[in-house]
Design a protein around this nucleic acid. Structure first.
Length: 721
DNA sequence: GATAATCTAG
């Protein structure tokens, strides 16, 4: 009970310097509260007291005319650690003198400066609000004195009694990333009745693991911390980042209940961003409406989150609508908004819109930054424009924008995909020499590049070296490696890696399963492929359109038409929208059965669903029709595909030309033959024979001989004498 | 106190 009055003095919100008198809280932890340790400096002897006064007098008298080493020369040999501490109270108000004296003592190096002296001088400077000096003193103290924090607590009552000291200490501990220590310290301060400023505790929150953060939020509230809006918004943000949206929403609701404040535009935008990340558009609209009802206007942050999900799903029409809405409500798009939109158009490979937006940015005096350039480089790489991508990379360097690890990774990936792993590795070396650390994405790109060349061994070696640098393989790296092994026909080892991956605590995803299902299907083992499909469903991994297409291809290639049809029906029932690849497999199968009637029925079904035929569709249909000698259909489709800028493949050219030839459309066949050769494709023996025979009967000996030479060279035909 | 970019499957 005696404890209470003194506690009331120390129980202070240090940041605000206001007394804290809530008896309810004091009662809660009355038993836990304790006074600050009682500390007093040692008492000087009579001789020491004389010595000290002598020094103090001399210092005060001569300090403005002379330097400390000169002034103290006569005293230097007897000057000890304790003298320093005894002198300080007499000089307290002259901070420059205190610091000079302290530094002089340090520089003598006769005796190391004690933790106590460091702590006392730190107290003096923090209380004097001389923050720069205080900071360097505290930093020095923290880094070179093991018990500095402890000593600050011990010397507190005697030397400062100003709780600001602890805000300062906590800030510095956090700055030095000594997080666990900070947590222990703040909890200890509670036991003395000191509550560190919420502004400082907010920094602590940012540095805690999200689970610890939640616990601390609750725990500290009980100790009397009044979390503010910034605290709540940070907590919401942290939870959203790890997609723990329900918990984030709980914090959002608690703002009103527990802090008595109202969520602001940051709270709303942060929560909206969280819902955007998990793709819950209903909640997003709900929150937008709620914001409006509360008289809050969405800003760039709010709109950008919405734009990101629309762009990610390639829905640029709606993204443009949101942009208009944003402009209408008077919010001007910034670099972030533009970069998001540009990235959206990159993802659907609409380079024209990309260039349009870059120009539009300039008209608004916004300039592409490193991120915008990275997006552009990525767009060009995706469109096989590696030369242009490299040019853009040089351009950004010229504009003194610094490419970071993401920029390098994007370009490295581009070169890997273009098959130029050599240059990709050169870029990797260049980034290291510039002090940029390649990350797991960089290594995955390089490893994937090697795998795609069939060099899984080198990829393995590279990843081994990478692990030596402390980086860990992620799901993407594993998937790429599994794919590499599958593509060189080594399914067994791919499955081994699949098992190893599970052992490291990483869970296989839709990519992993799809890759293995495809490998099994292509090797003719539909049973195993189907088995894995069942396994992924059981594990709750959602199959993608690619998974369905891989299975569909498996069924169709094995002639399991009925299963293919059933799969299509099932997909539609489950709301998975088939695409052209799905239908292509079915059509290809029907073509191989020479059933063009069924093929065209499937084609019509596909078109009626609003699914546009792709390059592959046209190739399948033209080849099928040509082989069935339906030249009218083949020609019509060829015209249509040419208009769309699609190209025939080598086998389609061959089938089409043969079809034309057999239907006696010789001139047209000849034209196509030249066009095909012009594209670097070669004819087969049968086709050469057709044209050689024809030219010979027509009496064109020159062409006949030319074609004979070519067939000898290209088809390795042996000449029978 | 909150926003944009890089890697994997057909």
């Amino acid at each position: 009970m005696l404890l209470l009055p003194s506690l009331r003095r120390t129980l202070i919100f240090s940041g605000e310097h206001k007394a804290f008198f809530s008896t309810a809280i004091i009662d809660t932890f009355r038993t836990a509260l304790r006074p600050f340790p009682d500390y007093k400096p040692r008492t000087p002897s009579v001789q020491d007291t004389d010595f000290i006064h002598h020094i103090v007098r001399t210092l005060k008298h001569r300090y403005q005319f002379d330097q400390i080493p000169n002034i103290l020369r006569p005293f230097a040999s007897k000057f000890r650690q304790d003298h320093l501490i005894w002198i300080l109270p007499h000089l307290k108000s002259d901070h420059t003198l205190v610091l000079d004296l302290f530094r002089w003592f340090q520089s003598r190096r006769r005796q190391p400066v004690s933790t106590e002296a460091f702590a006392i001088v730190s107290h003096i400077f923090i209380c004097a609000n001389r923050m720069n000096t205080a900071q360097s003193l505290v930093r020095e103290g923290l880094s070179s004195h093991r018990h500095f924090v402890e000593c600050m607590v011990y010397t507190y009552k005697h030397w400062s009694s100003n709780p600001v000291v602890f805000d300062f200490m906590v800030r510095e501990l956090l700055d030095a990333k000594r997080i666990d220590e900070t947590l222990v310290f703040v909890r200890r301060l509670f036991t003395y009745g000191i509550v560190v400023a919420v502004e400082v505790l907010n920094v602590l929150l940012l540095n805690l693991h999200v689970d610890v953060m939640i616990k601390v939020f609750e725990e500290f509230s009980e100790f009397g911390v009044d979390w503010n809006l910034i605290s709540y918004n940070s907590a919401i943000h942290r939870l959203c980042m790890v997609e723990r949206i329900e918990e984030a929403h709980k914090f959002f609701v608690e703002i009103k209940i527990k802090s008595g404040q109202l969520p602001d535009v940051v709270s709303y935008s942060t929560l909206i961003d969280g819902y955007c990340r998990i793709g819950d558009s209903e909640k997003v609209s709900e929150l937008f409406r709620e914001m409006e009802l509360n008289g809050l206007n969405p800003n760039q942050f709010t709109y950008n989150s919405v734009l990101i999900i629309l762009c990610k799903s390639g829905n640029m029409m709606d993204a443009e609508k949101v942009l208009v809405e944003m402009l209408d409500s008077g919010v001007t798009p910034d670099e972030f908004v533009y970069t998001t939109l540009i990235n959206g158009y990159c993802k659907i490979d609409d380079l024209n819109s990309v260039y349009r937006l870059v120009e539009e940015m300039k008209t608004r005096s916004l300039f592409p930054d490193t991120v915008t350039y990275t997006v552009l480089i990525n767009a060009l790489c995706r469109n096989q424009k590696i030369v242009e991508a490299d040019k853009i990379f040089e351009e950004m360097i010229c504009k003194r924008l610094e490419p970071d690890e993401v920029t390098y990774s994007a370009l490295i990936d581009g070169f890997c995909k273009a098959g130029n792993t050599k240059h990709a590795f050169e870029l990797h070396n260049r980034m290291i020499s510039l002090g940029l650390m390649p990350n797991i994405v960089t290594y995955t790109s390089l490893s994937d590049g090697l795998c795609k060349q069939g060099d899984v061994g080198s990829a393995n070696e590279l990843l081994y070296q990478m692990c030596g640098k402390g980086l860990e393989l992620n799901v993407v790296t594993y998937n790429s490696l599994i794919n590499g092994l599958c593509k060189i026909g080594n399914i067994r080892q791919a499955v081994q890696i699949f098992v190893e991956m599970g052992g490291t605590g990483l869970s296989p995803d839709a990519y992993t399963y799809t890759t293995l299902i495809d490998a099994y299907c292509k090797s003719g083992d539909i049973q195993r492929g189907h088995g894995l499909f069942g396994e992924m469903l059981k594990k709750g991994i959602e199959p993608s359109i690619v998974t369905f297409n891989v299975l569909m291809n498996g069924f169709c290639q094995s002639g399991m038409v009925e299963d293919g049809r059933k799969l299509l029906a099932w997909m539609i029932e489950k709301g998975v929208v088939p695409n052209s690849t799905t239908y292509n497999s079915l059509m290809k199968q029907q073509c191989s059965m020479k059933n063009m009637k069924n093929t065209m029925e499937i084609y019509k079904e596909m078109c009626s669903q609003g699914i546009k035929p792709d390059e592959n569709t046209y190739n399948i249909l033209i080849k099928g029709h040509s082989q069935a000698r339906n030249l009218i259909e083949a020609r019509y489709l060829h015209k249509e595909m040419t208009e769309k800028g699609f190209n025939l493949t080598e086998t389609s050219y061959r089938a089409f030309i043969k079809g034309l030839f057999k239907r006696k459309k010789v001139i047209e066949a000849r034209e196509m033959f030249e066009e095909m050769r012009g594209k670097g494709f070669s004819a087969d023996k049968e086709m050469y024979n057709m044209f050689i025979d024809y030219n010979y009967t027509e009496g064109d000996m020159e062409t006949t001989i030319e074609l004979c030479d070519e067939v000898l060279e290209k088809c390795h035909v042996q000449v029978i004498q």
